[in-house]
Design a protein around this nucleic acid. Sequence first.
DNA 1: TTATATTACTCGTGGCCGCA
DNA 2: TGCGGCCACGAGTAATATAA
Length: 299
Amino acid sequence: MKTDIRNLDLNLLKALDALLDERSVTRAAERLALTQPAVSGMLTRLRECFDDPLFTRVQRGVVPTMRALELAQPVKAILAEVSELLQPKAFDAATAEMTIKIAATDYALRAVIVPFMAALRVQAPGIRVAVLPVNNEQLSAQFERGDIDIALITPDSAPPDLHARSLYDEEYVCLMREDHPLSAQKDLTLDSFCAQDHALVSYLGGNFKGVTDEALASIGRSRRVTLSVCSFLVLPEILRVSDLISVVPRRLTHDLPGLKVLPPPLAIQGFNKIVVWHERTHRDAGHRWLRELLFSTAV
DNA sequence: TTATATTACTCGTGGCCGCA
DNA sequence: TGCGGCCACGAGTAATATAA
């Protein structure tokens, strides 16, 4: 039989390597944790593969042919490369160069991505981040195609086939301009809260009701929402130049000069923010490091 | 005498096929 | 399309034959 890669496997190369080192079928078998006949059989298959006797029998063992000696170094090199291939690739954040794609709402952008980026720039300056809008209906497909690597969402919109971990529990607070008439109140009353004109964020746009209205309805009260915007990011500017107040997630109220935060006068159900990712990136050292950084920077 | 090669057998795996 | 049964094949072992 002529040399045919289809009949050659790594175990045969390991046997050839052991035979070249030991010059004995019996000792090669001991090294490979096999029996002598097993290695003898492997030698037979090696002889067929390379169309050469490879080893000739002598009084105490076997001696390699010229062909076998030629193979010694290439075989060792191949086995070393395979061994290296099987080692998990080390990840060095300081020198890593990669792009991570994160699906996030503008809320998550400010609450999670901003502190994440501050730490990332220091620890891994070679890593680029692309933030994409969240598309709940397409999330699984986007992960499968590799369009996104991580998504920052709420548990109710998480597909069951993804890995998920809770990031934090968010609560709502009331936000208004610093010199707003209501800001003088130590505790915002329900009556003054309901009497005020409100602004809210409707992620899909155009909606004038949210979790605050549901909480009010449950106690038989209501409010007037006069502005609905589709982004959290413009809300502070609007509140600074108007008498509108707004109920917003607490993490959006950090570092907002000219605005005041008060606890809402009723219980409003908060929400849980989670991170989801696909099996495709689950074990990758770089992605694992990035996820841990995300968890450590989200407070 | 000692080490290698061969033989007979066992066991695990993968391909094929029929069935629900 | 998935599952289970059947079969063939390869690789292993123990026992034994053979060669240096």
